[in-house]
Amino acid sequence: MRKAGVGSLELTVLLSVARLREDGYGLAIRRDVALRMGRDYSVGAIYTTLERLQAKRLLTSRTTAPTPTRGGRARRLFSVTAAGHRTIHEARNLTKAVWSGIGRPLSPSRA
């Protein structure tokens, strides 16, 4: 099976969904991403990313019952698939490999 590559926002969203577990829906994911990235992404940006991750089969979703607080619309809850978990582990291993050998904060070398 071809390995699905993910960009930085995709990985951030994927990690948010993994972190939120049963509560992984758009609004909660957007808040989690904003909290950790220090940047407020638009609702459209988050859902576009979620759609992309679903197309890559890294996420699945299911809908809840419609609620009045959402104007009679349902919530879509996302969860990470086995392939999604593999991607997260691979990303972590890759980051570790890239950072290996750097034990403390870097300072510019003095000539």
Binding site: V43, G71, R73
Partner: peptide
């Protein structure tokens, strides 16, 4: 339609 519903649902919820 589903995409729009998700977006509008979130916007409505956070708006409240």
């Amino acid at each position: 339609r589903d995409f729009v519903d998700d977006v509008l649902g979130d916007l409505a919820e956070e708006y409240l």
